[in-house]
């Protein structure tokens, strides 16, 4: 006898379409001020990013991973977090780190090769970013589990790429989160590529969201270029995480830049494909929405541009005039008492 034991579905959430039109029933509650704030953080992310690439090209920064095209996935999720929540970042979420309170000059200094740049200020709940692919979801799960046992009302969000879902650690993290009902949110930034490998060569799964099903946790695909959908999905996930229900959010987006400053994406993808995604630019979409609602115009855009550019320039100046770390620093943190 064969009988049906269980069927599963995979959902996709979209709120704001490419023309800047929202789905009213799903629209998260936001004031005008908050909407502009979201746009501003996306703007900061983009300008920070462009500047980093420029600095790298002139030898003033090290290898850097660009966020271009992923601003809605990054800011929409981070904006939903509350002060007490935590971020366990990958190397492609600098914008969220800034939003959470990481100092911009210090973040540049990290990418410039200065360890001091990965020490967060007191009260900023951001773990040092993780360079090894797909390994920090376990740390996030453990931290969330710890918070839960301490009865703290806080959740942990960790992000990683589509490639990371192939690593064993990713699967172990989802499994632990399910077993221990850890208040953790897994944000997979599916930007379609892991360096040169497209998602369809990474996995035979049709979606990445469905990987959650195997571990008994919630999985949802979200239009990752839709800031409102990203915000709503994360808000829902925070609510559920607080009840011991972890979520895997697959933010379906696109890496519009090279993988890092050491990569040349032309080697493995077409100009045409990149152009087709440029039309789906997440910032353009929010701007269209704001213009449709008559809460934004060219003058405000110009004002914001000036403000953000000045902010980033100031951070770069600060970064470049930092006193170098003393040599002794290389010994200081190997053990509690320094090197031995």
């Amino acid at each position: 006898m064969i009988r049906k034991l269980k069927t599963f579905t995979v959902q996709r959430l979209e709120v704001l379409n490419e023309h800047g039109k929202e789905d009213r029933r799903l629209m998260p509650k936001l004031s005008q001020k908050q909407i502009k704030e979201l746009y501003k953080w996306m703007y900061i992310t983009r300008v920070f990013d462009a500047k980093a690439l420029k600095l790298q090209r002139t030898g003033r920064l090290g290898t850097y991973a660009s966020m271009l095209g992923q601003e809605a996935a990054i800011i929409g999720s981070a904006y939903a977090l509350r002060k007490q929540d935590w971020l366990f970042p990958s190397f492609r979420i600098s914008g969220a780190m800034l939003l959470r309170g990481i100092d911009m000059a210090k973040l540049y200094s990290y990418w410039g090769g200065d360890e001091r740049g990965s020490k967060p200020e007191k009260g900023v709940n951001v773990f040092p970013l993780c360079i090894t692919v797909g390994e920090q979801p376990l740390h996030a799960t453990g931290y969330a589990w710890g918070l839960k046992m301490q009865k703290k009302n806080a959740v942990v969000l960790t992000d990683f790429g589509d490639g990371a879902t192939s690593e064993g650690d990713f699967h172990e993290a989802l499994n632990f989160a399910g077993v221990f009902k850890a208040p953790v949110i897994f944000l997979c930034q599916n930007n379609q590529y892991a360096i040169s490998i497209p998602v369809k060569k990474q996995t035979a799964s049709e979606t990445l969201a469905q990987k959650a099903i195997a571990y008994g946790i919630k999985g949802i695909q979200v239009d990752g270029n839709d800031i409102f959908a990203m915000l709503k999905a994360t808000q829902d996930a925070i609510r559920d995480a607080g009840k011991g229900k972890p979520t895997l959010i697959e933010a379906y987006t696109y890496r519009m830049s090279d993988h890092t400053t050491s990569d040349d994406a032309k080697k493995y993808r077409s100009e045409k494909e990149v152009k087709s995604w440029m039309k789906k630019d997440p910032m353009l979409r929010l701007r269209r929405y704001m213009e449709r609602k008559n809460i934004w115009n060219a003058k405000e855009e110009e004002k914001l541009q000036k403000e953000v550019e000045a902010m980033v320039d100031k951070a770069v100046k600060q970064y470049e005039s930092m006193t170098p770390a003393p040599k002794e620093d290389i010994f200081k943190y190997i053990y509690a008492g320094g090197a031995q």
Partner: peptide, 15 residues
Amino acid sequence: GLDIIVPLPKLEDYY
């Protein structure tokens, strides 16, 4: 090499 974790580029020359 020194008995430490290899420093990031800014201090790597000491290693």
